[in-house]
């Protein structure tokens, strides 16, 4: 078990935003969290990263309570934040190199280039400052960075936001192969169709509660069932 939430309760600014959710993500597994705005998806990721200590329940990373050793949990995780804002005055390569060094890794330019190839960031953009990038280009850079971290666990908050359909397709393939190499991926998304294709499991989050889980059976996840459940969650109750 790479990630595990156990009747997790989290409060932000005194208000309970996660009310006892339980789920787990294994190695070789892609888990997608679906839910409307404010459902608590990002909050769930931040709990695994040690930023929001639970008011009740627990979060485990590799069987260890996150809040007993936050540094160890973070070391095992590559995190792609919701609005990954890179340093505008640096190029994509420089941004990636800086963040990798932050994580205590050294990165060769060929390795960075290969990762940027994989997300199809155009080669002449790589030498330009990120300040001049489109949203999708920034997202691609951040995804490349998360891949390069080469950690056992990836926490991705809306990784496909801003990407064009081709790039989304590429991303899902990449994520699949990452999981197939033995890593655990927990990603937040609004994209029902994409989630059904790329994920092994989908958790439906609403109002801080897990309203249902869908697992791939035989030929992937039942898109129609997920779509129905999803519309139910986003319809104001």
């Amino acid at each position: 078990m790479m990630l595990q939430a156990d009747s997790l309760h989290v409060a932000r600014s005194g208000k309970e935003v996660l009310s006892g959710i339980s789920f787990s993500v294994d190695a070789y597994e892609v888990y997608a969290l679906l839910g409307g705005n404010g459902a608590g998806k990002s909050t769930t990721l931040l709990s695994f990263l040690g930023f929001l200590s639970p008011t009740a329940g627990s979060v485990l990373v590799k069987h260890t309570d996150v809040y007993s050793d936050i540094a160890a949990a973070r070391k095992a995780i590559a995190y792609l934040p919701e609005s990954a804002s890179l340093y505008e005055h640096l190029t994509a390569q420089e941004n990636i190199a800086y963040f990798l060094q932050l994580a205590g890794m050294s990165a060769s330019s060929p390795a960075i280039d290969a990762a940027l190839d994989r997300v199809a960031l155009s080669p002449n953009a790589r030498r330009r400052k990120v300040g001049g990038y489109s949203k999708g280009m920034r997202q691609k850079t951040a995804i490349a960075l998360a891949m390069l971290r080469d950690t056992d666990i990836l926490l991705l908050d809306e990784p496909t936001s801003g990407l064009d359909p081709n790039a989304i397709d590429e991303f899902h393939q990449t994520i699949r192969s990452v999981a197939d190499s033995g890593k655990a991926v927990l990603m937040v998304t609004h994209d029902v169709y994409g989630a059904c294709h790329a994920a092994d499991k989908i958790g439906m989050l609403q109002g801080g509660k897990l309203k249902g889980e869908f697992a791939a059976e035989g030929h992937g996840i039942d898109i129609e069932a997920v779509r129905k459940a999803f519309s139910a969650t986003v319809v104001p109750s």
């Binding site: 990263l49 930023f51 540094a71 973070r74 995190y79 934040p81 963040f99």
Partner: peptide, 18 residues
């Protein structure tokens, strides 16, 4: 403000010394 604070802290091992 840049939305980078938690990302930096999640990436670096020892945030305080960073």
């Amino acid at each position: 403000i840049a939305g980078r604070h938690d990302w930096l802290e999640a990436t670096v091992g020892q945030p305080t010394s960073f």
